[in-house]
Design a binder for these strands. Structure first.
Lengths: 213, 213
DNA sequence: CTTTATTCTCTACAACTATAGAAAATAAAC
DNA sequence: GTTTATTTTCTATAGTTGTAGAGAATAAAG
């Protein structure tokens, strides 16, 4: 058996022999290299050879950690999702209502180089997901979580009296989510450097719309 | 010379010999086949062989009409864009203000099978455009046109007194455009059949938001 | 240094790709 | 039917891809 499953080697099960590589950590290294390649050269440039090279290895070195390319890509995409969600959790912690809503959106919007790169990752992911139900399910689940969080913040904001619009919260949440997704596209397709399309102004404008009954 | 440029053969320049195929029409046939393949099997399934087969030809028959695959894809994407824009023009004709705005959005939103298929085309296009400046430019130009149209309708709607929100029209136009793009993603990634995510309700809700100062 | 299990490199391979171009089929004009 | 230019098929090619697996390199333990 050449390939150890996640965290199987953390407990030191083969004491007779040296354990050199932390498989989980190596997987993250490889995912990071993949991420960089896709952001720089697009999904089509992310061949196994190129990924291995970027990570500093030769052609076949990926196999023990990811049996197939699809495994690697799925793990890579999932990792970006998780990281974004962690950032969201950390930024909205302790906040509620409009403050939480604003923090949430500012964290998702492609307002700096790093998040613009994430937008360049998520679009290839969507393209794969269009014809891959398993990847589509990852997306569906994340979006459901996001919608729930947005609705929660909206409800709090209504209690604060800062959202008074005569439109159902579920509808508002859908609008806001779609605005966030659309911003990803605009940012990813904008010529390098000239990025900001006033996404922050759009967010503030939308919060203004919500405030008036 | 085997490949005639667009509409070069409409005037009958070689009267000595039979002219059998209308090159422009054949190009549209091939683009249609391409469209069907991408909608059904994704961009990765759209190989030259598969496209030729779908159109009822053998492997090499595409060459006289499109010298390279990239030429074909670019033409195909451009054609979908043009068709959508024509539909928009036809639907908003004679309308103005909120009516025109609503018609515009309803025509773009993925509310029926055909437009959901268009969403399944545009996502692969975006993915290509992320690393292809020429395709990105096609997108940029279309979006600029759309933004201009939306702003025009918003201004009319303000004159009618049906838009009274205290937010700049440019910002509103950006919000609405991003909502439309986001809806494409949601629709393209939704499991087949279960499509409608309440996009029409989102539109009506947004128009409600705009109406109140 | 020897042993030993792991990790990595390297080569190989089968599948598939876009593309090129020779040859065959085609259909109007005579 | 014959001619003629066009249209299409068919085969070939050069390149790339994911994957497999043998062997070398590696590093800890004795």
């Amino acid at each position: 058996m050449a390939h150890k499953s996640l965290s199987e080697n953390l407990s030191g099960e083969w004491p007779a022999v040296p354990k050199i590589v932390d498989h989980d950590e190596r997987r993250l290294e490889l995912v990071d290299a993949t991420w960089r390649i896709i952001a720089r050269n697009g999904l089509e440039g992310a061949t196994m050879r190129e990924i291995a090279l970027e990570a500093g290895f030769a052609n076949g070195a990926l196999k023990p950690y990811f049996p197939t390319k699809d495994t690697l890509l799925e793990f890579a995409f999932g990792h970006v999702f998780n990281r974004t969600n962690q950032r969201i959790a950390s930024v909205t912690e302790g906040k509620s209502g409009v403050d939480a809503l604003r923090a949430f959106c500012l964290e998702v919007l492609p307002l700096d180089e790093e998040r613009i790169n994430e937008a360049r990752i998520v679009i290839p992911f969507w393209q794969k997901a269009v014809n891959d139900p398993q990847k589509a399910e990852i997306h569906r689940q994340s979006m459901e979580e996001w919608l729930a969080a947005i609705r929660r913040h909206l409800a709090e904001a209504r209690d604060e009296g800062k959202v008074r619009a005569a439109v159902d919260d579920s509808v508002l949440a859908g609008q806001l989510l779609n605005m966030l997704l659309g911003a990803q596209i605009e940012a990813a397709l904008a010529p390098a450097g000239q990025a900001n399309f006033g996404h922050d102004a759009q967010l503030e404008g939308y919060l203004t719309l919500l405030a008036h009954p």
